[in-house]
Amino acid sequence: MVSIGVDMGAKNVKVVVLRENEVIGKALVTAGLDTEGALKEALQSASREAGIDYDEVGNITATGAGRKDVPMARDELTEVGAAARGALFHFSDARTVIDVGAEEGRGVRFNAEGRVIDFVINEKCAAGAGAFTEAMARALEVPLEEFGPLSLKSDREIPMNAQCAVFAESEVVSLVHAKTPKKDIARAVHDAIASRITSMVRRVGVEERVALVGGLAYNVGFIDSLNRDLETEVLIPPDPEYTAAIGAAVVAAERGAKASEGGENS
């Protein structure tokens, strides 16, 4: 059976097509003002890649902040549940998932079946989200994709005093004026966000192994700082930004199977 997971994020729409527990198509479209159009485009593009007909689709499950705006979805899944199921899809030994996107960060602890045991979410404050590193990279005038690798070159720990991203921008500028090497500032930024994410996740209890998903999973500087803080090596899935959509697709397949069983019995 074919199932589809849709992740309607704040910025992007992500769609994953799953067949027999295998990803056969995926697409990411930046939403902008026309979320409906972006959703259609992402669905078409992922279906085309998968080479499926719409009739083949057994079930569609939506997740993400805009999950109510997916009319073709038959059911929904919270972002927390989607992160857990998506992480487990890639790593059967994962028990904690850290998901840091542009506008929020969350930590989820779950059991071997992917059932959520405890979770914590930090939203509405850029200090604990990917937006923090984006703002700092801008203040440092370093392209975002080079920001992580730059941080790895540093072997010096300097503390950042500011918590707020706006105040941290000023702090970064003063560090530049004080002739602090950019690589050391980059490391300070990643250490700062990693330390906040670690404290947040500790609230749910960190159980090994730990998977990292979301946009910040592409940032090697952040991964390095996070590993140091958590004293572990986090697992990074391929295409980490699709994790929630995969989680939704997995649940869509399960629920679809149950529904058809139920149909046969009645």
């Binding site: 918590q163 906040r196 404290s199 609230r203």
Partner: peptide, 14 residues
């Protein structure tokens, strides 16, 4: 400026 994090140990979700 970080007591949400400093006090995290004594302030679990449950």
């Amino acid at each position: 400026k970080k007591i949400k994090y400093s006090c995290a140990e004594c302030k679990p979700v449950d």
